[in-house]
């Protein structure tokens, strides 16, 4: 008899193998994270407590000055504005993205796949090219203004580019797919019988939406909010290119401290505070998610 009872497998030293293999498979990613996330964060943390010399070089001399400067009203205002813009972007993305995600999720499978492809098509083009395309559309003598002028809707060229509105348009455009996709993922899994059951028990469209659909697609909503809000706060390229320099975001400020102003310790301090903020926001969002979904 060539019986091979299962116990002989678990008892053998080979039982350790899956574990070892797991780590081997994870190793490249872990190395990447350590090298390009943990180490830079450590450098940033060290820099944030340093001063600089007249040439802008980092001097390893302990100080809290950088952190004190972060809480200067100028920077708090910029931070506040960044949060406001990001929140507005997230809100618009949620309002625009939820119906789209829901609509796609309710289609037949082949239609669904085509619509999802349409959502993702913009990713095939470089992000910068898309941003410049928006700039040509929005500028004073650009496509949008020209169309509205020739249609007689507006009397004079419309100057949207380099205004906060342009920055918001650019941000919403860039992050909308990140809202649609996770909500779609949740909505697609939602059994339509649950919605019918809600209607059957007397819930009109509004109650069915708030009592059943939202709680059951909440994981997707939460993921979408995080995926849009977090990068939108830190985004500097779109706000720089489309919003103009008049309304700097926190991302622009940090970017400038490193590239233009040459104040790396202060930029590092801003970056650290900024990262901490994310961690707190993320933790809160997770907890909200768990309390409604034990």
């Amino acid at each position: 008899m060539q019986a091979l009872p299962s116990t002989s497998l678990t008892d053998s030293p080979h039982a350790l193998r899956p574990r070892v293999w797991g780590w081997v498979l994870l190793a490249p990613m872990l190395a990447w994270l350590v090298l390009f996330v943990l180490v830079p964060m450590a450098i940033l943390l060290v820099y944030s407590f340093c001063t600089r010399d007249d040439l802008g070089r980092v001097v390893f001399e302990f100080t809290f000055e950088n952190y004190q400067r972060v809480f200067d009203p100028i920077y708090l205002r910029i931070l506040g504005r960044s949060i406001g813009y990001a929140a507005l972007t997230t809100g618009i993305c949620l309002l625009m993205g939820y119906p789209v995600a829901w609509f796609i999720a309710r289609q037949r499978e082949n239609v669904r796949n085509w619509l999802l492809l349409l959502v993702m098509i913009p990713f095939w083009t470089s992000f910068l090219i898309r941003t410049y395309a928006w700039m040509t559309i929005l500028k004073g003598n650009g496509l949008l203004s020209g169309l509205l002028l020739s249609a007689g809707v507006i009397p004079a060229p419309l100057e949207i580019l380099y205004t906060p509105a342009a920055a918001i348009i650019g941000l919403v455009y860039a992050y909308l797919p990140f809202m649609i996709l996770p909500i779609y993922g949740s909505a697609e899994k939602l059994d339509n019988a649950l919605v019918e059951a809600a209607h059957d028990l007397g819930a009109g469209p509004v109650r069915a939406f708030s009592e059943v659909i939202v709680p059951l697609t909440w994981p997707g909503i939460a993921a979408g909010i995080l995926l849009v809000f977090v990068p939108a706060i830190g985004m500097f390229a779109i706000t720089d290119l489309m919003g103009g320099a008049r309304v700097p975001m926190i991302g622009n400020v940090i970017h400038n401290q490193f590239i233009k102003a040459g104040n790396q310790p202060f930029g590092a301090a801003l970056g650290i505070i900024f990262t901490l903020m994310f961690v707190v926001a993320y933790t809160l969002a997770q907890r909200r998610g768990r309390s409604s979904h034990p």
């Binding site: 019988a193 019918e196 059951a197 059957d200 009109g204 069915a208 059951l216």
Partner: peptide, 20 residues
């Protein structure tokens, strides 16, 4: 008449209990 305006209730094949 919309389902939520009918004095009729249904037991679904999949039960359709609200998981949350």
């Amino acid at each position: 008449l919309a389902p939520y305006r009918r004095n009729v209730n249904q037991v679904f094949q999949s039960y359709a209990l609200f998981p949350h």
